[in-house]
Design a protein around this nucleic acid. Structure first.
Length: 981
RNA sequence: GCUCGGGUGGUGGAACUGGUAGACACGCAGGACUUAAAAUCCUGUUCGCCUUAAAGCGAGUGCGGGUUCGAUUCCCGCCCCGAGUACCA
């Protein structure tokens, strides 16, 4: 009789059992002190969306989990936490539509995420879970905001310092001796003047220095979402979320003085192990350019001048006109009466254009002459002052000195408006286009004639500084980050207003709890939703700030909260921060390149400046997992024009397989004929088939396997189509009454698209876990390809991994499914297989090549199966190596092997012994003129000379030599022999 | 336009610093077991030519060239796909 307890690999029972065990025993709880070295593995925490996880989301989590489990086995104290970035727009949009509080939606979504994450067997330390929307978390987000408000950036020391220190300086020395990153229009005053200022005046002045400050600025306003958006939340002129139009608007806004850290953010990139494309994106975003600012005085106006920024100050003698952005503040005052009409018309035209898509039109040249002239700072020549929309108000000073000989846009402009073009280098060719060369010697350039680029630049900067007309300057593209959102579902800003000025609430009053409101929409007067909160006043009299923090606030420091998640008195204890320091490995998507990852680095540097963080950079190593795209399946439905049919007739549904459709497409006459005849037979007497056509229809990928449609499942999926007829790949036909068992198949067409519900290409991990188990899913996701590569999801092939795990299970069992492992000494071949995999997996994990280690596991199990190996000495080691990948099955086997339950996660990792891999012989590939012809077994101890002699004496080799003497014989020991004839 | 990735069988992919291209899987074909199906196992599977077969020959990592005894790997030129970014002075 068969014993029911002894059965094939029962993944469902095993996985449930161990997930419960890990949770009950807190197996993965990390301690904040240890004799072991620390290792911090972080995943980008998810926004818990209503749709739950699809199969692409866990890719990075699986990789980080494998790495965490591996590091634990290698003797590290591993911190591997998880949480939720739970403030955000979708929950609020849902609240607007349904009236349900976003907290409730969020709670429900988190429950779904948690269930799905638990099913995958991740080794997270859930005791450290964080949620950015929970008051005991956002208390500290607000607290960090307060620290930023209370700090300014000292350029002399290159770090943030306390605002009190600045106030003390002002009180004793006035503004002298302070170099800060601050607003442009800061005052100059003496100590006495400062001390005489009113409270309001002092606060107004200090606001210009604070690292988070309130200022009127041009913002990206999204009317549909009713909020401002950061630059990185706007893509191609529309909002990243939802794709709504975005316009420019002036508003009083909280901003973060991230520009203070521009240089440090740039420098820091050199010292972190991040993917090059990502670093490059951050460099571009920061956009440092080194050059000079130059002042052009205005003819007949000694009060004002035009300041321009240039990266090629050496070309200054090539300047033939100066251009202002149409929005430049001096345009109106500098336009002469003659030109007024033309200039105003041009400004009107650009305004209209920018509302449409100005980006598309970069080729046409347009502009208008203001009628004014500026004077060249070095030779005093009169230069025309123009406006044109190719000059951007938001970059540099909104004005450029035009050098048509060296800049293509200036060149086109000069050609179009007939302005002079002066070459300034002897090697320059400006016949057809601008030539931006730095080679050669200067001409037409006054005192730099005959010099070369480097010396010329230095000479000009020196001269400009001497006469007070300019100076060397570094310009950054990066702007300060807008920090307010006119939304409900975010952290309240811990600020109230007195006499129109912002003040922080008391630290002891944190957290400032998000108040309840009746509707999640702006007020009638256009204030943010928080304006609806009743009796919500500071000390019952002062208005609170009504905007909330942006989505990136909570995620800019969360990795510190994980270090000490329960701490009620600090954002994290000093001991915890000093112990964990920084994140050793961070895994997540590259879509956060210029948002989260830049803001996090900024906050981290600030926290370091004020002594709360230890490291300058928060994330030592970062890996971007590739995006998982959808792989849609399609059916082709015949859609012919019918003649002689009355209106009530319902067309028969006929689907043709991909191959048949392709024959039809290629114009295969027989196929077309046969389909038409076939269809005609389905029609009533007298009807005719006219023009044939096909509709390409999405079909649920979950009822398609290896591109073959499960017809029975299709009839259930689409009950309205349950009478459909299918023409299969070989031309045979399945009618509704048929029991869909057939030699041939209905093959679907395939396309790669974004994964989305409407395309029926979403694959849910729950279904795959139900069918194959999470160990299989984990390994399959890794087996799919290199972690960093984007790839379409394709469930074809998951069977192979499932088979592998069953084969692995079988290694430990006899034919009757009884656990059978013996203590015999392993053979040489068994040890070789084992140590091959020990080395391979170690190498693969260290370089994050998880797909190749899955292959290697398959090879090892295939080899050991062939060797009929069931020896503990080999198998127990193999269980440890495989456990990071397939933890459940390995835990089960580990206990079956007689070990204490739960000890596998901290077992001793097998040590690679190279002596087991030493070979005596090697089958040398023998190639003739680079083409491999045969293999000859030779001892590896043989010296190249002996190998050569032996090879040349070989009769098979002689055949190839054909009596000739080889010109040359290359012998690479242990590798190859190449004979050149 | 610029900056990064990337082009290898029917498919996903492997090949670490130049050394037997196609590991490992999927799929497909054939076979065993079975009343049958599922499951399982075995064999074959880059393409082309030739052969009854064994074997043999030729081509082959987007295209064209180069360096080298030897190139998927290095260099030059070009084509295609993907991502990011863009009047940035």
């Amino acid at each position: 009789m068969r014993n029911c307890e002894k059965m094939d690999y029962q993944f469902k029972d095993i996985e449930k059992k161990w997930q419960q065990f890990w949770a009950a025993n807190q197996t993965f709880k990390a301690e904040n002190q240890s004799a072991k070295p620390k290792y911090y593995v972080l995943d980008m925490f998810p926004y818990p969306s209503g749709a739950g996880l699809h199969v692409g989301h866990p890719l990075g989590y699986i990789a980080s989990d494998i790495f965490s489990r591996y590091k634990r086995l290698r003797g590290f104290n591993v911190l591997h936490p998880m949480g939720y970035d739970s403030f955000g727009l979708p929950a609020e949009q849902y609240a607007i539509q349904t009236g349900q509080h976003p907290a409730i939606t969020t709670e429900a979504n988190i429950a779904t995420y948690r269930r799905q994450l638990d099913q995958l067997g991740f080794s997270f330390d859930w005791s450290r879970e964080v949620r950015t929307s929970s008051p005991d978390y956002y208390k500290w987000t607000q607290w960090i905001f307060m620290q930023l408000f209370n700090s300014w950036y000292n350029k002399t020391d290159e770090k943030a310092e306390s605002i009190e220190k600045l106030v003390a300086h002002f009180a004793t020395n006035g503004s002298a001796g302070i170099t800060a990153v601050a607003d442009d229009e800061i005052l100059t005053f003496t100590a006495a003047e400062w001390n005489a200022m009113s409270e309001e005046a002092q606060q107004t002045e200090l606001l210009k220095y604070r690292l988070t400050y309130l200022r009127e600025s041009t913002v990206n306003w999204c009317p549909a979402l009713g909020t401002v958006l950061a630059n990185d939340e706007v893509k191609d002129g529309v909002s990243e979320r939802g794709g709504y139009p975005v316009e420019q608007k002036k508003m009083m806004q909280w901003s973060m003085r991230i520009t203070a850290y521009a240089e440090r953010l740039l420098q820091g990139l050199d010292n972190i192990d991040w993917p090059d494309p990502l670093k490059e994106m951050q460099r571009n975003w920061i956009g440092k350019s080194v050059g000079a600012s130059v002042k052009f005085s205005i003819e007949g106006n000694t009060q004002q001048n035009i300041e321009v920024f240039t990266t090629r100050v050496d070309t200054i003698f090539g300047v033939t006109f100066v251009v202002l952005a149409p929005e430049h503040e001096l345009v109106a005052s500098l336009t002469t009466p003659d030109q007024k009409e033309a200039v105003e018309a041009y400004i009107a035209q650009t305004k209209k254009k920018s509302e449409l898509d100005r980006m598309a039109d970069t080729k046409s040249v347009s502009g208008a002459f203001t009628g004014s002239y500026v004077l060249h700072p070095l030779n005093g020549e009169r230069i025309q002052l123009w406006i044109a929309d190719y000059v951007l108000a938001g970059y540099g000073t909104g004005a450029v000195m035009a050098v048509p000989s060296g800049d293509q846009r200036d060149y086109l402009f000069a050609k179009h408006f007939n302005l002079p073009i002066i070459p300034i280098l002897d090697t320059q060719n400006t016949e057809k286009e601008a030539d931006a060369t730095k080679e050669g010697k200067y001409i037409n350039s006054d005192f730099i004639d005959g010099l070369e680029y480097k010396e010329a630049t230095a000479a000009i900067v020196a001269k400009l500084e001497e006469i007070g007309a300019g100076k060397a300057k570094v310009n950054f593209r990066m702007r300060d980050a807008i920090f307010g959102r006119q939304r409900y579902w975010g952290e309240p800003v811990p600020v109230y207003f007195k006499n129109g000025l912002p003040y922080l609430i008391n630290e002891s009053e944190l957290p400032l709890i998000l108040p309840e409101i009746d509707k999640y929409l702006p007020t009638e007067s256009g204030e943010p939703p928080l304006g609806r909160a009743e009796d919500w006043k500071y000390q019952n009299q002062y208005e609170y700030e009504l905007s909330t923090m942006p989505g990136w606030a909570g995620s800019s420091w969360y990795w510190y909260r994980y270090m000490d998640a329960q701490n009620a008195t600090n954002f994290a204890s000093k001991e915890a921060v000093e112990y964990w320091k920084d994140v050793d490995l961070y895994i997540g998507g590259s879509e956060h390149a210029t948002g989260h990852l830049l803001y996090s680095r900024f906050w981290n540097k600030f926290l370091k400046d004020i002594g709360l963080a230890v490291e300058e950079e928060p994330f030592k190593k970062l890996i971007n997992q590739g995006m998982i795209q959808g792989r849609s399946s399609f059916t082709y439905r015949l859609n012919p024009l019918l003649l002689g049919i009355d209106d009530n007739f319902v067309k028969p549904e006929v689907y043709v397989s991909k191959g048949i459709y392709e024959l039809y497409k290629e114009g295969d006459f027989d196929t077309i004929e046969q389909i038409a005849l076939f269809y005609k037979d389905l029609l009533p007497e007298g009807a005719e088939v006219g023009e044939m056509d096909f509709s390409k229809l999405h079909v649920d990928v979950n009822i398609v396997s290896n591109d073959a449609l499960d017809i029975a499942a299709f009839r259930t999926w689409r009950p309205d189509n349950n009478k459909a007829i299918f023409i299969l790949e070989d031309g045979s036909v399945i009618y509704p009454a048929d029991n869909a068992q057939n030699e041939s198949k209905y093959i679907c067409d395939v396309e790669i698209e974004k994964m989305s519900k409407s395309k029926f290409n979403v694959v849910n991990p729950d279904d795959l876990i139900e069918r194959y188990g999470s160990d299989t899913l984990r390994m399959y996701e890794m087996f799919l390809g290199p972690l960093e590569q984007s790839k379409p999801w394709n469930t074809n092939g998951i069977e192979g991994v499932f088979k592998f795990l069953r084969k692995f299970w079988r290694l430990f069992h006899n034919e009757q499914w009884e656990f059978t492992v013996n203590d015999d000494a392993p053979t040489k071949a068994e040890l070789k297989s084992l140590h091959k995999i020990i080395r391979k997996v170690e190498e693969d994990i260290e370089r994050f090549s998880f797909n190749t280690s899955v292959s290697s596991f398959m090879i090892a199990v295939n080899e050991l199966t062939d060797l009929k190996c069931n020896k503990r000495a080999v198998l127990q080691e193999l269980v440890i190596i495989l456990s990071p990948y397939a933890p459940h099955i390995c835990e089960e086997l580990w206990t079956l092997l007689g070990n204490e339950a739960g000890t596998l996660s901290y077992a001793a990792y097998p040590v690679f012994n190279p002596s087991y891999l030493v070979e005596d012989e090697f089958a040398y590939p023998i190639s003739v003129n680079g083409k491999t012809r045969l293999n000859i077994n030779m001892a590896l101890t043989m010296e190249p000379k002996e190998v050569e002699a032996l090879v040349l004496a070989n009769p098979d080799v002689q055949k190839y030599l054909d009596g000739k003497t080889p010109k040359k014989v290359i012998v690479v020991k242990g590798r190859i022999v190449n004979i050149v004839i």
